[in-house]
């Protein structure tokens, strides 16, 4: 049996792993949910710079929790760091679509073997809308997906082919779940790291996405 984790533990593990994988100095856009935990887990000496799609360049922690004049895309108060700027949405999306962001980290409903992502609607159930996600995946240099490995009912979120409407296709570079890290290498999804105590064969059999196993498969530190 795969080790079961509490929701908080799983989410923090994913955020921590991605934080450790980011390069110093990267300009990063974070989606809502697990990605927002990443700044709390940045390793000592590694700095990332945050852009928010609603128009902050160099976003920092909130100063006054009641001040909504500077917020992130989710509506939570933030601040702008020295050297930062505010821009309008046409400029913000020019930054995102135009390849000026190094990394984006987004959540997923489904992600598949071709690097396609679905995260904006479950038709007839829930349609939050795509928001900025379609533009972001179209333009970011590197797309990380931060997601739980399985649905609540046990089904794999990592599929051979997404069944939900797509956000983008051939766009996903790295997938991090509470059990493993998978990297898109030349269009192939390669399992590079696995958490200690997780049985490789069992994880493979329960994951619908066909993964290649890296010859240098490592233990995922978390």
């Amino acid at each position: 049996m795969l080790p079961e984790l509490k929701e908080k533990e799983a989410r923090e593990r994913i955020a921590k792993k991605i934080a450790a994988d980011l390069e110093d100095g990267a300009l990063v856009n974070l989606g809502i949910g697990i990605p927002q935990l990443i700044p709390n887990f940045m390793p000592e000496g590694v700095n990332i710079y945050l852009q928010t799609e609603n128009g902050t360049i160099f976003a920092g922690p909130a100063v006054d929790p009641n001040d909504l004049r500077v917020i992130d895309a989710g509506g939570a108060p933030i601040s702008v760091l020295p050297g930062g700027a505010f821009v309008s949405s046409d400029v913000s999306f020019g930054i995102l679509r135009g390849g000026h962001i190094d990394v984006t980290v987004l959540g997923a409903l489904q992600v598949d073997a071709e690097g396609c992502l679905a995260n904006w609607t479950i038709p007839n159930v829930r349609t939050p809308g795509m928001g900025g996600a379609m533009d972001i995946v179209a333009g970011a240099k590197k797309v990380y997906i931060a997601t739980r490995h399985f649905e609540k009912n046990g089904g794999s979120k990592l599929l051979e082919k997404c069944t939900l409407p797509l956000t983008g296709c051939g766009v996903v570079d790295v997938i991090v779940t509470e059990y493993c890290l998978i990297r898109n290498i030349n269009g192939k999804m390669v399992l590079e790291e696995i958490v200690d105590g997780v049985d490789l064969l069992e994880l493979q059999s329960k994951t619908e996405m066909q993964m290649e196993i890296s010859p240098n498969l490592k233990i995922m530190k978390c």
């Binding site: 949405s89 999306f93 020019g94 349609t127 795509m130 900025g132 996600a133 379609m134 533009d135």
Partner: peptide, 20 residues
């Protein structure tokens, strides 16, 4: 979202960068 799923409101969703 509920009104949309029941067809009570006509909503066209655009990607945000496309909309702006």
């Amino acid at each position: 979202q509920e009104m949309f799923s029941k067809g009570e409101i006509d909503i066209e969703l655009n990607p945000m960068g496309t909309l702006v």
